[in-house]
């Protein structure tokens, strides 16, 4: 199956609608940056946007390091107080965050990987295979994307209760696998990223559809799969309503469930709540910082163009 291992070589038949183009590949330099060098003004504007983007995160940490009284005074605090590590420690212990991180990593990771796999399979079928009823089925997929999630929670809970899955991670994991967006996303991506010639070449070599999926579709879909995995991971990590209904703090909590008990009392401790919010976000932020280049690269490669 040599054909399947080479990346698609055929130049795309048409580049941008309405524009004739002889070159299908841009020089490499274009990818590393645009055509022009940035002037000082660009840096200034970008710095402003970055400030807007990072300031709330920074201020979460500032708030976590203060106390209630200081948080409700004018002018607000701009720099760290003394409480950050104390609050973080309390949040960590009270919230049982160690276990929660493991559970959430497991649920979000499994969910993301499974969805990637299933969505690519289904997306491929919808994008490139012909079968009876495909249009109707695709409509169902798109339709499920539009169901408001707040309500399904009640009937879904009735089901989970019948199955006696309370406090078990599969109660969060299994329903999260229904992901119409993933199927739609992969379909859109594969329609344009997967040339029909490649599939035909595979067929000519006598490959079954399954082999084509495995050896042609998956390699090509990889960037989009990476994006989908990240989207799903972040979404599952941050989900609250449903996990809160089926899990408790000492029955395999996820991070957001664990955080729900923080700062409790007639006097909610704002700083502690902020510290919890910060700790809950930190792992994702760390991953973003460490693998920023790859994640950004993934999003950009996987970005669907239409």
């Amino acid at each position: 199956m040599t054909t399947t291992l080479t990346p698609p070589q055929q130049p795309a038949p048409e580049k941008t609608p309405g524009v004739k183009s002889s070159r299908s590949r841009r020089p490499r330099s274009a990818r590393a940056g645009g055509q022009f060098h940035a002037g000082p003004l660009t840096y200034v504007i970008l710095a402003l946007f970055t400030l807007g983007s990072l300031f709330p995160l920074f201020w979460t940490a500032v708030a976590a390091s203060r106390d209630n009284t200081r948080l409700a005074q004018s002018p607000p605090p701009f720099w760290f107080g003394a409480n950050l590590f104390d609050k973080a420690e309390v949040a960590w212990k009270d919230g049982n965050l160690g276990e929660a991180f493991i559970n959430t990593t497991f649920v979000a990771g499994t969910s993301a990987l499974t969805i990637c796999f299933l969505s690519t399979m289904a997306g491929f079928a919808f994008a490139k295979l012909r079968f009876k009823g495909s249009n109707a089925l695709l409509l169902v997929v798109i339709g499920t994307m539009m169901v408001p999630p707040q309500l399904s929670v009640i009937p879904l809970y009735m089901m989970v209760a019948k199955l006696d899955w309370s406090d078990q991670l599969q109660a969060v994991l299994l329903p999260s696998l229904v992901n119409a967006f993933g199927v739609f996303f992969m379909r859109q991506y594969l329609i344009q990223a997967l040339p029909d010639e490649l599939i035909e070449a595979g067929r000519v070599d006598g490959a079954s559809t399954w082999r084509i999926l495995w050896h042609i579709v998956f390699p090509i879909a990889r960037p989009a799969m990476a994006v989908l995995a990240m989207l799903k991971f972040v979404e599952t990590w941050n989900d609250f309503l449903w996990p809160f209904l089926v899990l408790t703090q000492h029955g395999s909590p996820t991070v957001q469930v664990a955080l729900a008990g923080l700062g409790r009392g007639y006097t909610p401790d704002q700083a502690l709540i902020m510290a919890g919010a910060l700790l809950g976000t930190l792992p994702l932020l760390l991953v973003f910082v460490i693998f920023g280049k790859q994640i950004v690269g993934g999003i950009m490669q996987g970005a669907v163009k239409g």
């Binding site: 209904l245 008990g261 009392g265």
Partner: peptide, 27 residues
């Protein structure tokens, strides 16, 4: 004795009610 605490009753009570109606997930 093991305790589970939710900070806000607004979160706690709807969950409790669902658990009661289904007789499941109760402490």
């Amino acid at each position: 004795i093991k305790e589970t605490v939710t900070e806000r009753n607004e979160n706690y009570y709807p969950a409790l009610l669902s658990h009661l109606t289904q007789n499941s997930g109760l402490q």
